[in-house]
């Protein structure tokens, strides 16, 4: 009897990942290829970002992938001067929310985009990035 290998790809997400297994682990492979992807329900067409394995609207689990592309409107943001354990090297950093219309994306501003240079309502794009500690993530940049 062979041991089943556990798929822990999700442990690569973010400065600190708090969970390693999920049914949408392909998200990580896409990030490695430079793509930020959400899921689309093949039955009802609902778009989900962040990706979901299951559609609560029609109870379907047959999902396809779509790429987060174009720009979204900056809904709000905040610069943190304190952080939880494990994020000390990142301080200060700015968390933010973009509205793409059909879905929203939560993340951080790129390190070279200071808080002073953004305002609510401006258009930003989402790009994948590699973190100094070897982890994978995505950030918001000017288009």
């Amino acid at each position: 009897m062979g041991k089943r290998k556990i798929d822990v790809r999700f442990s690569k997400f973010g400065t600190v990942s708090f969970t390693s297994t999920t049914k949408v682990n392909d998200f990580i492979d896409y990030l490695e290829q430079g793509k930020v992807m959400g899921t689309k329900c093949k039955k009802c067409g609902a778009l989900f970002f962040p990706p979901r394995a299951d559609c609560y609207k029609c109870l379907e689990s047959d999902m396809g992938w779509f790429e987060v592309s174009g720009t979204g409107k900056l809904v709000t943001y905040s610069k943190l001067e304190y952080c939880p354990v494990g994020f000390e090297d990142d301080l200060p950093y700015v968390i933010a929310l973009l509205d793409y219309g059909d879905y929203k994306v939560f993340g951080r501003l790129a390190d070279d985009l200071p808080e002073e240079d953004v305002s609510v309502g401006m258009e930003l794009k989402t790009v994948s990035n590699n973190l100094p500690n070897g982890q994978l993530s995505y950030v918001f940049q000017k288009p």
Partner: peptide, 24 residues
Amino acid sequence: IQWESPFGTMMPAYYAMYARNHMA
């Protein structure tokens, strides 16, 4: 913990995001 905590979020920062939008 899957999608937001990996960005280093904290309770005050979330309410701060509401404050920012309220101000704007």
